[in-house]
Amino acid sequence: MNLLALQWSFRPEDSTKWTYLIVAAIIGFAFMFALSRVPTRMRRVVVGTFTFLSGLFYVLLYIWPQPIDKKPLDIPQGPVESVGFLLQDMVPVVKDFTSILTAFLLGLGVYSLLRVHIGRVARRQRDWQYSGLLLLCMATMLTIGYWDFFMQSANKAVDYSDRANWTTAQYGFDLLFDGMLQQMDAAMFSIIAFFILSAAYRAFRIRSIEATIMLGTALILMLSLMGIASYFTDWLFVQKLAGGNANAFVGNFTLAEISNWIKNNFQVPSLRAMEFGIGIGALAMGLRIWLSLERGGVSA
């Protein structure tokens, strides 16, 4: 990383590091302030440049010749290989930028939540008590979560996976997270079963050829999941009609075989064709965003 004659890294125990960090932060915020002075007509260009440069990294990573057999201490030979090495070295750094930036933006989401719910409590709007409950639960989780986290990181030697070492913080966090949050997740996840049932009952009707085809396939697949139905067809076709010969022609008519046949010869190709379209669509949209060709809507 020592590309420029500048110290990019430091030891964790270095005392100068805070100076570096503060200077970096000041430069960063000064840059941000400078950007805010950009004239209106240049704004699109600024945003477009940032977008283009970030996209360019992955595009280059793809089309730039990849160095062969790169070992950690190798020195690159020639300009092409130097760029190749640099790109490879940057991957572990750049790949996390999206999640770091999204994490910084989380505050916006929290701001929105607080705005809606504090507003409701302050104005005593309909259901304001529930909003109060939400804020209370949020604060509780936040407090106990960080209490538990700091306690665990301060006492690295204690094995907190053993319940014998637990204190109030761990019990509290376990109750809130495992006892409540996870249970609620599971409850909401399982509620889908009910909705599948009512949706099928209401909408799976043989109104048109298409609906009938979809219904028929779904029914065959559902039957094949019932062991008893598969067992019956296996008994009928293999044991009775073919006299126990597992390789006989009629053996292809067991539910398990039919459902596999449908999956392999209809489900796979039809979904694949659909995915091709989606993949090309995503690429096209990616290109339009990367090159700032979209107008209107988000990119207005």
Binding site: L197, Y201, F204, R207, L215, M222, G227, I228
Partner: peptide, 21 residues
């Protein structure tokens, strides 16, 4: 239970289609 639930599902679909037929 899964058998029971799937059977219920199939019966529901059939019942839903009876009126149409």
């Amino acid at each position: 239970s899964l058998h029971a639930a799937l059977t219920l599902m199939i019966l529901a679909v059939v019942a839903g289609n009876l009126s149409l037929i």
